[in-house]
Every structure is written in structure tokens, then in C-alpha cells.
Design a protein around this nucleic acid. Structure first.
Lengths: 244, 244
DNA sequence: GAGTGGTCTAGACCACTCA
DNA sequence: GAGTGGTCTAGACCACTCA
């Protein structure tokens, strides 16, 4: 495996190993939640030292593609684990902290992608898609109303029933039912005036300020697979963010 | 330096090295922008291998406390570098990307800390402080109005003149003039209705939606040193965020 | 006690910077 | 060419998990 190149396009060994492991993850050789082979085993498979495999795995663990557990092994990260029910959810109440959080599906329709969503999902205009609408309640109070758009090709057979079976935990469903793992999201936030749609589902009047989140979710290879538009009633809640 | 403990409170060597390097950073043994000793030199100073020093330095570089440069050395991170003029600034125009960004100081007053700021800065209520107000323009249009509160004790001698000398680049000034380096920030975002103060400085009418950012900035040891309240006109701009 | 990931070493060599 | 960080190895031992 020792490949030494002069200087142009030098790629360290551990990056090549990273690429190989990523390929196995994408191909599904090891499924979400399952253990990958031990470091020693991978080292012998790739004919490199354990240290080199460790460096590759560390990078992938930093990117939340793998999860290491001392004494147990290294596992493919999964959204279906208890501890990460709402992995990218940043809304918190202004006072106090932990509260109950639950999701309600409003409807799930087959609908062509609008121009903006198609562009963000890198699909042709008017491509087939799904539109999901749901509400998130914190301590029983509706706080977030969401419109989620998915490309039909990647989510063939999606239905309200399926979503209900996953208790409206979408990322967990994407993974369990469609083999699509969300690795990261990009968001844009704005303050807007509430329109009819939002006021109907959040406890708001038309014209009141609402926090609008536009989110694109990505899986392996930076491939966009979900477009989401969320509206948050931030009267008693806020979006939390830590930088570095 | 080899300290082996049975099991309770086991601390790996590299963490201890991390702590020692952090102490030197806090004490100012090496100032912002300056190089720290080479890995080999630190290894011999602490009587550990280069690998152990590397692991400690890697962690500190991840936390943006150090910056490594292959072939040159490892440097104390600094806000005064050209490439990081507005390090924690996330507002971007909806269309196009790069635009000119400039800051205007409105005023700098000595003023006691209000209750909320005092609590967030972990100071006694009514402690002496400073209140800075400024506006950020993007391509000549005012987009953000900010109220910044600082504890007087840490910023003795602050003045409009000093701020002007740093071209209103506050983090750079905290570092250069007061030896205070901001390492990370915590933010809370809300949508609110614009009040008189905001409309006076942003191109808005009273009641229009505004994005409110409440930020606390921290230096070494998670010590809070600045409280900031920002109001953004998000009509043509948005707050960008990437999660993982 | 066997197997896993986590730490640490000493040493080699490489890519890069700068004089 | 000297000095820096970056990669890689082989090997040792440790902390932790689980049967």
C-alpha cells in the first residue's frame, strides 16, 4: 500500500484509507449502528499500521460518520440511537432547559419540486418530489412549523404510515427506511412577518415576527437530499448556537 | 514526567501537556501572533515524546488557540491577522457573496452594567462597565446595529479614540490593547419587532421583523468578557450556519 | 481473560519554508 | 541546507467492556 509520489498531488496514506472506509460506508458494507472491523483488522486489510488507520478513523469520527467506544469497538453513526433523536435541532426555551419535544405530521403529499427546491437539491425543475408538513411541540405548545421537500427518486414509497411508524423522526426514517444518512446541514436564518400558513399552526397573529430557517441537509459526498423551511415562534424560545 | 495512576481520575499525559501550554498562553509567555517553541523543543522541555506534544498541540489548534504552519512553526492564534477581520460574523447577503463590510462606532460610554449583562459576565449587579454602540455596513448599506457591554475592570482606559485606532475591529482591539483573546461565542437568535432604536440605525420601519442576536464571548477558561446584542435587518441578508 | 480502542515512545523519512 | 510541522511504523502498555 506504500505509494510514494514526488510532490504534485501528494496524498497521505491515511487520506487514502479514509476514502476506502468511506466507500464501504456508502456501499453499505457496514450498516448504521453496526460495528466496523477493529483497527488491527483494518490495518492488516489495508497493509498499514494501526496508527494510520486510527488517524483515518479519528477524522471520520470527527465528521460524525463513525462513533468510537473504548473497549467495545467503532460503530457506524446512526440517527436511530436514543441519544440523538433530534440531532440538528437548536431551538430551546428562553427560561429553564429540558422540556418534552414531540413531532406531529400534518400531511405527506406527492408534489413536484418548486424551482428553488429543485435547484438546491440539484434536480431538474419540476422533478417529482414529496412535500411533508409537520409541527413540533415543546411541552405541548406548538413552536415550529415545517415544510419539508424530498426528491421522489431517493424516497420512493414514502407515506404517512411509514412516517408514523418512525414517530415522525425523519432523519431516523431516512436512514432506516431509505438508507440515507444525513451528515450535516446548512442553514440560513431570517426574521420575517408571519403569514397565514404559519399563524394557522403556531400560536401567532398575522404580521408577528417569526424566525425562518431555510435548511439543506446533505449525505455522503455533499449530496443534498432534503430541503426544509421551518418557522419558529420565538416569543418564548430562541435558536442556540455556539461558534467554535 | 511519566505519572501513572491506578484508575480513578486517570489523566493522559497529553492532557497535562495541553494544560501546561494553555497556562503559558494565559500567562502571556507567548503573545498573539508569536511562534511557540518547536515540537521537539517542547518535547524535551516536558520530557515527553514529540508525538505526545503533537497531540496536545493538535487539540489546541482545533480549539483555535494555536495555528500550525507546516515548515514555519506553530503560532498563537490572533484576531489581528488579515484573514480573520470578522471571525464570528455570519451575516451574508441573500444573493451574491463577497461584499465590502465596514464598521462605524456610534458612541462609547462609561455606564454601569444592567442586571442581565452583569449576570452573563458573572459580575456584581451595577458593576462599572462600558457601553459601545456601532453599525455594520455591507456595501454601504447599514445591516447590523449592535450594543456591546464590557466589564470596566478588564477594559480600563477604553475610549472612542482607541477604538478608532483599531478601525472598530473590536476583537482585534481586545487582543492588542487589553491582552484579551476571544476564543468562542455563544449566541441566541430570535425574531422580534423593530423598536425605535433599531429603526433609527437600520433602514427599517417600527414593527418590521428584525433578527436579534444575543451573544456572550468567552476567553480562556470559559471566562465571559463581552455581552453583545445585535439587531440585523434580514430583508436582503441572512444568518448562515453550518452544523457539523 | 480476551478483545477493543486509547496512550505513548523512538525513530525514520517526507513536505514545506526560508535564508 | 537547516529547521519546521506532517506522516508512518512497530511495538509496548493502559483503560475499558463483556462474557
Amino acid at each position: 500500500m506504500k505509494i510514494s509520489m514526488p510532490s504534485p498531488a501528494f496524498q497521505p496514506l491515511y487520506r487514502q484509507i479514509k476514502e476506502l472506509i468511506t466507500q464501504s460506508l456508502v456501499s453499505g458494507e457496514w450498516g448504521p449502528g453496526e460495528p466496523i472491523p477493529s483497527e488491527i483488522e483494518l490495518a492488516s486489510r489495508f497493509s498499514v499500521s494501526q496508527g494510520t488507520v486510527r488517524k483515518a478513523i479519528s477524522d471520520l469520527a470527527d465528521a460524525k460518520m463513525l462513533v468510537r467506544q473504548q473497549g467495545r469497538g467503532t460503530f457506524v453513526a446512526s440517527h436511530s440511537e436514543e441519544r440523538s433523536k433530534f440531532p440538528f435541532f437548536r431551538i430551546a426555551p428562553d427560561v429553564s432547559s429540558v422540556q418534552s419535544l414531540s413531532a406531529r405530521l400534518l400531511d405527506c403529499r406527492r408534489e413536484r419540486l418548486d424551482a428553488a427546491s429543485a435547484r438546491q437539491l440539484r434536480r431538474p425543475v419540476n422533478a417529482q418530489g414529496y412535500l411533508l408538513r409537520r409541527v413540533l411541540d415543546m411541552s405541548g405548545i406548538p413552536v415550529v412549523y415545517e415544510e419539508i421537500r424530498l426528491p421522489a427518486g431517493s424516497f420512493r414509497g414514502l407515506s404517512s404510515n411509514l412516517i408514523d411508524r418512525y414517530h415522525c423522526m425523519l432523519y431516523s426514517m431516512y436512514e432506516g427506511a431509505f438508507g440515507i444518512r444525513i451528515l450535516h446541514v446548512e442553514e440560513g436564518l431570517k426574521a420575517i412577518s408571519a403569514a397565514q400558513v404559519e399563524t394557522a399552526h403556531l400560536d401567532l397573529s398575522v404580521g408577528e415576527p417569526v424566525l425562518q430557517l431555510n435548511r439543506v441537509s446533505y449525505t455522503y459526498d455533499e449530496k443534498p437530499v432534503e430541503v426544509r423551511r421551518s418557522f419558529c415562534n420565538t416569543r418564548n424560545h430562541h435558536y442556540r448556537n455556539r461558534i467554535i
